[in-house]
Write a protein that binds this DNA or RNA. Structure first.
Lengths: 116, 116
DNA sequence: TAAATGCGCAACCGATGGTTGCGCATTGAG
DNA sequence: CTCAATGCGCAACCATCGGTTGCGCATTTA
């Protein structure tokens, strides 16, 4: 609940899911189950090389895993890691929410004290 | 629950809170209640101009509001907008979580069907 | 009135998201 | 078996962005 709570969040993970294109790629992978740099490029209307770079980032962040199949390189979501990412996401959200509520309580207390 | 659910999320909002420095700035503002470009610069050990740019982004995203006070420009969190942001954050999280669970259910069903 | 403080604008630098272009490996049709 | 087609990797290039330094202007204060 202190500052370290948020600072401790993995920045790589955040920058991985902070990018809109990567979010849409994760979305596509969740829906389709798997995909290659080429198919994802078609799906998202960007270049194959573009998606390839993003897939590299996501793979380094551990969110997806690749399995070579002939001349294709098939990517799919790493369920465990992805679940961990979602958990961290909601963790920061609830931390902020709690802090916001606490601030409001204090503000109300101060205002009430001034009214006395 | 479809693709539009996630695509509809405000990209500006995401890029606003996607940056680690901006997250820490929001954190500092939540804790301290308010701050200027200079004070935040000291607090986060980066330049005043750096924080000034970030404050501009956050202000354009509607997460903070500025009130000029003499030669100072005092920023504070816009509670309503910030609460909305946190809500969207957790919304995407739960959407992904739901999708992940659904995928797992389908995978299990397929596997069970193959076992028959 | 002059020093100090806070801000804005502009130029610059490294990293990153995106592109094009090339070459190599695997596949599949003749 | 050969060769076009397909999928990938590497490299160069460009725009944007996070961050810096440097300057000038406004406001405060000594």
């Amino acid at each position: 609940m202190n500052a370290a709570t948020i600072d401790a969040v993995d920045d790589d993970l955040w920058s991985a899911i902070g990018d809109p294109t990567r979010r849409r790629m994760l979305d596509a992978l969740l829906i389709d189950g798997a995909g290659t740099a080429t198919t994802l490029g078609h799906r998202l209307a960007i270049t194959r090389q573009g998606t390839a770079k993003h897939l590299g980032v996501l793979e380094r962040a551990g969110l997806v895993r690749a399995t070579p199949a002939g001349r294709e390189k098939r990517y799919r979501i790493d369920d465990a890691q992805f679940a961990r990412a979602v958990a961290q996401l909601s963790s920061v959200g609830s931390a902020w929410d709690a802090r916001l509520r606490r601030i409001k309580r204090i503000a109300e207390a101060i205002q009430q004290a001034q009214n006395d």
